[in-house]
Design a protein around this nucleic acid. Sequence first.
DNA 1: ATAATTGCAAATAGTTTGCACCTAC
DNA 2: GTAGGTGCAAACTATTTGCAATTAT
Lengths: 158, 158
Amino acid sequence: MNERQDTHRNEFVRQKEQQFDALCRMRGLSQTVQRRAILAELARRTDHPTADQLYEELQPQFGGLSRTTVYRVLETFVRIGLARRITSPEAKARFDADTSRHHHFICLECGSVSDVHDPRLNLIELPPPQAGDFRILDYSITFSGICPHCQTPPDDSP
Amino acid sequence: MNERQDTHRNEFVRQKEQQFDALCRMRGLSQTVQRRAILAELARRTDHPTADQLYEELQPQFGGLSRTTVYRVLETFVRIGLARRITSPEAKARFDADTSRHHHFICLECGSVSDVHDPRLNLIELPPPQAGDFRILDYSITFSGICPHCQTPPDDSP
DNA sequence: ATAATTGCAAATAGTTTGCACCTAC
DNA sequence: GTAGGTGCAAACTATTTGCAATTAT
């Protein structure tokens, strides 16, 4: 029943390992045991684990793995485009008095959040998909990029 | 130049205060100075402030406001539907080895995150709006609701 | 009056940093 | 051999909790 899914997953893991290999060579990064293990575990899982969850899973398998390393390796993966960080860059809660459905833009540079009022987005009749027993109550679109304020970055050029 | 915007904002603040009033009466909540002040400040701002930003802004204005209270009041606002929390419920970073564009479902109950593979979402040609000097690099849709696992909640009924 | 709410201080959770040792290339 | 990577302990930041004092109704 899960055989086909497993096959897909294994194929995905293999792809990721290859990509890792290539990226390391390209960027002059070391292929350490820790990085391999963390990547394999992250690629194998579909539940979007936290750093801590990965640590808890891997630590027993080879002693002396450090939580710190997991955090650092994940950061590296994100930097080189091998993985993505779900949820906002700065992990602090932000609040909005506007409870109507609308969307947000988050600046990757400064972390600021602004409302997105593109009329086209309101035309999209996003059909709360009832699929797979998920009871979808709401949705929101988060755009990410560079805000006007950060377009001309901290004047480094003379 | 900002006159019209200011008018709108003030109107919005007023609406919010009314809503607060109604909700308090309905739910038997106290209308404290702190709650009024935090609501007014949150409603006035459009930058989706963090609890700390609100605290820093309000604290000087009336001595003895506590950070704790700001956190608690915001939580209350969210609970009664007066405000929204941007970013995921549990504010920890989650990672995903799948770097292709796809979307997520987050369970409001248990905080689990799963991929959303609704084909209709891929049809939506979301036009990275260049509007207002925002350089939009990416976007993702986050659905929220109740996951299959949490549909029949922790058996409280006898 | 009395039940809800606040403030303080201390605890907790997630994440980062400094520095000495270790390892991949 | 050496630059880059790791582990440990300690620091930091965001948030929560216990409890006594205060305030809204």
